[in-house]
Design a protein around this nucleic acid. Structure first.
Length: 512
DNA sequence: TTCCGACAGTGGGGTCGCAAT
DNA sequence: ATTGCGACCCCACTATCGGAA
């Protein structure tokens, strides 16, 4: 396939907001693609390079090269050239790298140059990622969209399914079944505002503790155990304790879903940062494991003894889980069916928080496992804190926020009458708020670096956040986790804002 | 006709580990 | 030795489209 075709489609997809039109455009593209183009076309459409980092900076890219008059590049040739450039980057020959980039750009038409520039700088945004591509693929091959979607979830990869579909047609979908040893995309949860809200929406449900660790999918086939993260990266070698734990379980062949987390000597969960650091360590695993041992806590069974459990109701899957996994290695839970059980569910949340955990996940008992989807049958509930903070600065936004001040720098009052920055947020703003805050902050501006606009600290904003965490970046030694704007408080003056002192007092376990 | 589920976009902080300085 | 940066971890929220109700 020619690059010009891909560049044109990408431009047209970006230009329309109608999903149906995006799907039709992608279907047309896939009809013209060969199976061998797929490993390149799929990442390119998502704005990703299969090679990952290339070592090409803005400096190299922004030197203008006269475009070719006629398109000649194929996607496979582009991919091969970029692979070559990546190799040169590894040897550190900057001049050679620049020469190869110029050569590639010189072979590209103006439209193709634009596409390649966006691809390499990571700025391809066309409003179509995997979900739209799945629909397009279904349209191109005549396969039912639901079947393609399911195959992608079970394969854990759009690319593999696309390649098989284009090479063999819809019959190829048969091959994509849940297989022990091959990870599938995990089911995700929506957010509910309270336990009452969640139970009210779901009816008969389980209320389970939500642990603040790393999601893990455990596959065991006899003595062979493999561990995968939420994005299906294999982390088997990093967590020998989990491999050992999986071998201790009663079943010989299974796929379980759970969380890996580090506990302290008293059995309380360690901070997310400590668990993440441990799970992220790859070099000296033995030392890391000794310093911060981790344990698995399971909450679902996807396959047991060769039986695919995905379509069974949660009640049945949990029964299988309970058969295989002893209590301490299972998430704690209570059942609830309606208003009468609400006090028990509320008390369970309170107790879970006292035990140091994040919150609860409320799960419908009759729901199947919706791999790869943010199903409405899992609802997480976490306590939300709020603060009144002062806007210290704001950053110019990107994409659809270009020309508006978007990312706010947030400060709390300090004892000496100044402000300490606690973090940033771009979340929670409506378009109307973005417009309003851009005007208001421009009035308060004292300096514009082109990226950050510093303002007089006068505007008070109410911020919601999930908790405090340690920070080496910010002066108070802490930062807000998942900060988002609730509303502006024009009725408050900066001297009414919260102080670092009261914030630390509210989270004594994190205070430095 | 209205409602609501699913998506994409817009980025946040921390951590590890590699490459460049 | 430091610093910069990508790739993953965790993640909230709004706007929009289009099918469901």
């Amino acid at each position: 396939m020619l690059l010009t075709r891909l560049a044109d489609v990408s431009r047209d997809v970006a230009a329309t907001s109608a999903r149906s039109r995006k799907i039709a455009l992608l279907a047309g593209l896939f009809r013209d693609a060969e199976a061998d183009d797929v490993p390149i076309v799929i990442p390119y459409l998502a704005g990703r390079l299969p090679q990952g980092r290339l070592g090409i900076g803005w400096k190299v890219l922004s030197s203008r090269v006269p475009p070719a008059a006629r398109p000649s590049l194929t996607v496979r040739e582009v991919d091969a050239r970029l692979t070559g450039i990546g190799k040169v980057a590894g040897t550190g020959s900057q001049a050679e790298r620049a020469r190869l980039v110029a050569e590639l750009m010189g072979a590209a038409t103006e439209e193709e140059q634009r596409f390649l520039f966006g691809l390499i700088t990571g700025e391809v945004r066309q409003g179509a990622l995997d979900a739209i591509a799945v629909e397009g693929l279904a349209g191109a091959t005549g396969a039912p969209p639901a079947d393609v979607r399911r195959a992608v979830m079970l394969a854990g990869s759009l690319q593999a399914v696309a390649q098989a579909l284009l090479a063999e047609g819809p019959g190829a979908l048969e091959r994509f079944r849940l297989t022990v040893g091959r990870p599938i995309l995990p089911m995700l949860a929506h957010t509910a505002s309270s336990v009452a809200d969640a139970v009210g929406r779901l009816g008969s449900c389980a209320v389970e503790e939500k642990l603040d660790g790393i999601r893990v999918q455990v596959h065991r086939d006899g003595g062979d155990v493999r561990l995968y993260t939420r994005t299906l990266d294999e982390i088997t070698d990093r967590l020998p304790e989990l491999t050992a734990a999986a071998r201790e379980l009663r079943g010989e062949r299974f796929v379980l879903d759970g969380e890996v987390i580090a506990f302290d000597a008293a059995g309380r969960p360690r901070s997310f940062q400590e668990t993440a650091s441990r799970v992220g360590s790859r070099v000296d695993v033995a030392t890391a494991a000794e310093a911060v041992p981790v344990a698995p806590v399971f909450f679902d069974a996807l396959s047991v003894d060769g039986r695919d459990l995905l379509d069974l109701p949660f009640t049945d899957r949990h029964a299988e889980l309970a058969r295989l996994v002893p209590e301490p290695m299972r998430v704690r839970r209570v059942l609830a069916s309606g208003p009468d059980d609400m006090p028990r569910a509320e008390e369970f949340l309170a107790e879970t928080l006292r035990r140091g955990h994040e919150g609860v996940v409320v799960k419908a008992l009759d729901a199947p496992y919706s791999a790869g989807r943010r199903g409405a049958s899992w609802l997480k509930v976490k306590p939300v804190h709020t603060l009144d903070l002062v806007v210290l600065a704001a950053e110019w936004g990107h994409g659809r926020r270009t020309g508006r001040l978007s990312n706010l720098h947030l400060g709390a009052r300090t004892a000496d009458g100044g402000f300490a920055m606690l973090g940033k947020t771009f979340k929670g703003m409506t378009d109307a708020m973005l417009t309003w805050q851009t005007e208001r902050l421009k009035e308060l501006a004292v300096e514009d670096s082109g990226h950050v606009v510093t303002v007089r600290p006068e505007l008070v904003v109410e911020i919601a956040y999930d908790g405090l965490q340690r920070s080496t970046r910010y002066p108070a030694g802490v930062t807000l986790r998942f900060a988002r704007v609730v509303r502006y408080r024009e009725d408050k003056r900066p001297e009414d804002a919260d102080t670092v002192e009261t914030l630390l007092a509210a989270h004594p376990e994190v205070a430095p």
